[in-house]
Design a protein around this nucleic acid. Structure first.
Length: 154
DNA sequence: GCCAACGTTGGC
DNA sequence: GCCAACGTTGGC
């Protein structure tokens, strides 16, 4: 089993929206970055776990845990001219963008904020991609060692 | 293939 | 709202 971190803006789709979704499940659509796509298309497996991270908000941080319930498949929002993530380069015969389905496993008892994670940047969380300067990846792997450490902070 | 311009991300 | 970082685009 592998571990991941998925970013989402709470104003767009936060943990509350996921908790309210049918079967507490959603497709992780709209990712338009090749590296992030490759992780979803090629590496995520059913049963993998991911941190649900709130970005671009007052208090960025990890707020929940989700599990991957469906492996990479074409992101249909790329085919829809009315969708904000429409990409005319992508079509059903040759899809460019992929997504996975995730289900909420649980909300954390408390949010683990970015500033709290940063406090360990030079120690136990050295190498965590989220903390790399200027990191903008919205889907990124987390080592098992880092996963366990972060959960112990909760 | 280089690289400047541009758009987006995301913390603050 | 600002701005640094960085991915993408497109002219050459």
């Amino acid at each position: 089993m592998s571990f991941w971190l998925l970013k989402s803006e709470p104003a767009v789709f936060g943990i509350k929206a996921l908790a309210a979704a049918a079967r507490r499940t959603t497709c992780w659509d709209g990712v338009r970055n090749y590296q992030a796509r490759n992780f979803m298309r090629d590496e995520m497996r059913v049963g993998d776990r991911a941190f649900f991270y709130h970005s671009n908000c007052a208090e960025p941080g990890i707020v929940g845990i989700v599990k991957i319930v469906r492996e990479g498949y074409p992101d249909h929002t790329a085919f829809d001219p009315g969708d904000a993530h429409y990409d005319p380069q992508s079509d059903r015969a040759r899809p460019i963008w992929y997504m996975v389905d995730v289900a909420l496993e649980r909300k954390l008892d408390r949010a683990i904020t970015l500033s709290e994670l940063k406090a360990h940047a030079a120690g136990a969380l050295d190498g965590l991609l989220l903390l790399r300067r200027g990191n903008r990846l919205s889907v990124l792997p987390v080592s098992e060692r880092h996963w366990r450490f972060i959960l112990a902070l909760e």
